[in-house]
Computed example of a mutant assay.
Amino acid sequence: MEIRVNLDENEMAEITQEKIETIQEYQKMIYKVRKLENKVIHRQKIENYIKRRYNNFASNTKKMVDSILQRNKEPIEFRNIKKVNQIITEPTEIKNKIKKHFEKWTKHNSVNMEE
């Protein structure tokens, strides 16, 4: 859109006022168009989120449930393991120690029914 308004000091006040009103009308039109563009962009974002949620519902229910319950699984990183008399820094050794720890921690404990 091309906007042409020339203001000269020699023009009468009435013509100047008309040109100011014309500029104000252009400003209102630009504002309305920009507001409409923002609404369209916002609606498109909403539509994309709806599609993504529907796709998760149809094909990846675990991700959808995690999202609804706001469950996030942050990765845990061990750089070392400190023991009383040593520090383990080797990544494969750390993994083995952690694996053994949880195997021992979650092992089956038989229940003594005689007590």
Rank of each mutant, 00 (worst) to 15 (best):
M1H: 03
V5G: 01
E9S: 07
F78V: 13
N96R: 09
A13R: 15
I88T: 03
V111I: 11
Q27T: 14
K32E: 14
E93W: 01
Q70L: 07
M113P: 11
A13H: 05
N60T: 05
I20V: 06
K19L: 01
A13W: 10
M12I: 10
K28M: 06
F57Y: 09
K62T: 13
K97R: 04
E37R: 06
E103P: 00
K95H: 06
K35L: 08
Y26C: 03
V5L: 05
T89K: 09
R34S: 07
R34G: 03
Q70G: 09
P91Q: 01
E14L: 15
I20T: 02
S59W: 03
Y54G: 06
K97V: 15
Q70R: 14
T92G: 02
I87P: 02
R52N: 10
N10T: 15
N112I: 08
I15F: 10
I76D: 00
Q24E: 15
V40H: 03
N109F: 09
R34F: 13
I88R: 01
R71E: 06
Q44W: 05
K104T: 10
S110P: 05
K39G: 02
T16V: 13
E37W: 04
K107N: 06
W105D: 11
K73C: 05
A58T: 07
K107S: 07
N48T: 12
R53N: 12
N6A: 08
E90L: 02
V111Q: 04
H101D: 04
M29W: 08
E25W: 05
K83E: 09
N85E: 07
A13E: 11
I15N: 08
K107L: 04
R4S: 10
I94M: 00
S59R: 10
N10L: 15
R34I: 09
I88E: 01
V84R: 10
N38L: 12
E93N: 04
Q17M: 14
I68D: 03
I98Y: 00
E74P: 01
I94W: 00
P91T: 00
E9C: 13
V33K: 11
T89Y: 05
N6C: 08
T106M: 08
N112V: 15
N96A: 07
F102K: 02
K104Q: 11
I98M: 00
K104S: 11
I41Y: 02
E18R: 15
N6P: 08
K104M: 12
N72R: 09
K107F: 06
L36T: 12
I50P: 00
N109Q: 14
H108G: 06
M1G: 05
Y31S: 14
W105R: 14
N72P: 01
I3Y: 02
